[in-house]
């Protein structure tokens, strides 16, 4: 199809989408309105379960089953990327070279890597209280480790990320979410029911199963993202085609 025909087809489709979407927008309840029946009920349910962060309560208590699906998507993506980016028959792995690093850059890494890791753990652990949680904290944890790559070189990053351990941690954390759901089924007759003592409002132990599910998701996201990035970085740094000259990369 020529570029012109393609554009014409798009223009026709865009006009149809635009008109219907515009009409739908005009009929949608107005922006900033005071009535949010679902929101009010979610806030009430969250306060009843003594979870200060309502978004966490929605994700890990009210809609915990959906979050199981969400973390399964993430798990499936890690599996898929591992499969797609595996070493092909006509490729070989060339160990990354050691790089010269400025001492100040190295100092930056030594100081900030532990701080970033602690921030990640804090965000995961306080998901039921303040903005954050397993997904956000997991990404912070995963990127924190990559300070090792930025402030030193790829060999240092390979030392601080034991991929075999992380693969297992990823699967165990994904399984732990389901196991907690089954525990709720056994204890109270409903999958992923919040069966643990609810604790004191605004304390780190509040919210019943919310902090535990957050921790499981935190471990899964952190190890999953590290494994995912490892496969991409391997492609860029270590894996070369057989016929490709080294300078051409």
């Amino acid at each position: 199809m020529s570029a012109r025909a393609r554009l014409l087809m798009f223009a026709a489709a865009a006009i149809v989408i635009g008109v219907f979407y515009g009409v739908a927008s005009a009929e949608t309840p107005s922006f900033g309105r005071a009535s949010h029946p679902y929101g009010d009920r979610a806030v009430a349910a969250s306060l009843a379960h003594r979870t200060a962060n309502v978004v966490s309560s929605v994700n890990f208590d009210i809609r915990a089953f959906d979050t199981l699906g969400e973390e399964s998507i993430l798990f499936g993506t890690v599996l898929g990327a591992t499969l797609l980016l595996r070493l092909a028959r006509d490729e070989r792995r060339r160990p990354a070279a050691s790089e010269r690093v400025l001492p100040t850059t190295r100092l930056f890494g030594v100081i900030w890597l532990p701080v970033a890791l602690v921030v990640g753990v804090y965000i995961v652990a306080h998901g039921q209280l303040s903005p954050g949680g397993g997904f956000q904290g997991g990404v912070v944890l995963a990127t924190a480790l990559h300070l090792g790559y930025i402030a030193a070189d790829y060999r240092v990053l390979e030392k601080v990320r034991p991929l075999a351990v992380l693969d297992v941690a990823d699967s165990l954390a994904a399984g732990a979410f389901t196991a907690m759901g089954l525990a709720g089924l056994a204890a109270a007759g409903a999958f992923l029911k919040n069966v643990l003592p609810l604790g004191t409002f605004n304390e780190i132990t509040s919210g019943g199963t919310v902090p535990l599910l957050n921790a499981a998701v935190g471990v899964e996201v952190a190890s999953g993202v590290i494994v995912l990035l490892a496969h991409f970085l391997d492609q860029a740094v270590e894996i070369t085609g057989n016929d490709e000259p080294e300078e051409a990369r």
Partner: peptide, 16 residues
Amino acid sequence: PVFSDLRPGSRPVVDP
């Protein structure tokens, strides 16, 4: 919609 530093019911919150 986070009540760690907000008394429930003191302010309207957006839909969580």
